[in-house]
Amino acid sequence: MDEETHHRMQQPAQRDTTVMTCAQCGTSVGSETAPPTWVCSVENGRHRYFCEKCSRTHIRAIESRLDSAWW
């Protein structure tokens, strides 16, 4: 009962190499964060990112806060 408990050293979790992908057209960039020219929209509690081209094409719908399903 008075013995010390020895815990195994756990290896640090390896990070996934995720890429940021446009929710509309599928364009991707090789980083975890969106470029400053991309738009972030919150739909149904989820963050969705749109590339510069899709953002420019659908800017009125985005500003009207329409879900991307309506575009």
Rank of each mutant, 00 (worst) to 15 (best):
M1T: 03
E3R: 13
E4P: 00
T5Y: 11
H6Q: 15
H7W: 08
R8E: 15
R8Y: 06
R8G: 01
M9A: 09
Q11N: 14
Q11A: 14
P12Q: 14
P12I: 15
P12V: 12
A13Y: 06
A13D: 06
A13M: 07
R15K: 11
R15Y: 15
D16M: 13
T17G: 05
T17R: 15
T18D: 03
T18F: 13
V19D: 04
M20R: 08
M20Q: 06
M20G: 01
T21H: 02
C22L: 06
C22E: 01
C22V: 04
A23H: 11
A23G: 12
Q24V: 12
Q24Y: 08
T27N: 14
S28W: 10
V29E: 05
G30C: 13
G30Y: 07
G30S: 05
G30Q: 07
S31N: 12
T33V: 11
A34R: 06
A34H: 01
A34T: 02
A34Y: 02
A34P: 02
P35S: 10
P36Q: 07
T37L: 03
W38H: 02
W38S: 01
V39E: 07
V39D: 01
V39M: 11
V39C: 13
C40D: 12
S41M: 12
V42N: 06
V42D: 13
V42T: 14
E43R: 04
E43T: 04
N44D: 15
N44Y: 13
G45S: 12
G45H: 07
R46I: 05
H47Y: 05
H47I: 11
H47T: 14
Y49F: 10
Y49H: 10
F50S: 00
F50N: 00
F50A: 00
C51T: 04
C51I: 05
E52C: 08
E52T: 13
K53Q: 08
S55N: 03
S55Q: 04
S55P: 00
T57P: 00
H58T: 03
H58A: 14
I59F: 06
R60I: 13
R60W: 09
R60G: 02
A61C: 08
I62M: 11
I62S: 01
E63K: 15
E63N: 10
S64D: 11
S64Y: 10
S64P: 02
R65Y: 05
L66M: 08
L66P: 00
L66A: 03
D67S: 12
S68K: 00
W70S: 05
